[in-house]
């Protein structure tokens, strides 16, 4: 399969999609390693899968329901907030994504 080589741009693009910031050295390293792995798994193209449905899970279960009742043992607000110090008035503080011009 010819498409199995990743170029530097591919790696940078994928890193951006995954919200990872990589250094130049890392980009080169991953370019080589990911190319090797992708070219290995490309052998799957040899397998005849015409008329084969994809498997996304193995239980065979569909539409699993439970009683529509409130569970009493959920987390309290304090417990839910206990993993971070960045809180304000009982809320999580998140980075700003809109600036004033977007209002």
């Amino acid at each position: 399969m010819a498409m199995s080589k990743l170029n530097k741009k591919d790696v940078e693009y994928v890193a951006r999609l995954a919200k990872l910031s990589l250094g130049q050295k890392e980009i080169l390293k991953y370019q080589k390693q990911l190319s090797e792995i992708v070219s290995y798994v490309s052998e799957l193209s040899e397998v005849d899968t015409s008329n084969v449905e994809p498997t996304s899970q193995t239980t065979g279960l569909t539409d699993v329901y439970r009683l529509d009742e409130l569970s009493s043992d959920g987390l309290t607000q304090n417990e839910a907030l206990s993993g971070t110090e960045k809180i304000h008035n009982g809320y999580f503080v998140v980075p700003q994504i809109l600036d004033k011009g977007d209002r």
Partner: peptide, 18 residues
Amino acid sequence: SAGYYDAYYLKAMKVRTK
């Protein structure tokens, strides 16, 4: 990612069925 989903992910899910 767009352009590779069918060739890799969907293909792998089909071989998984086999």
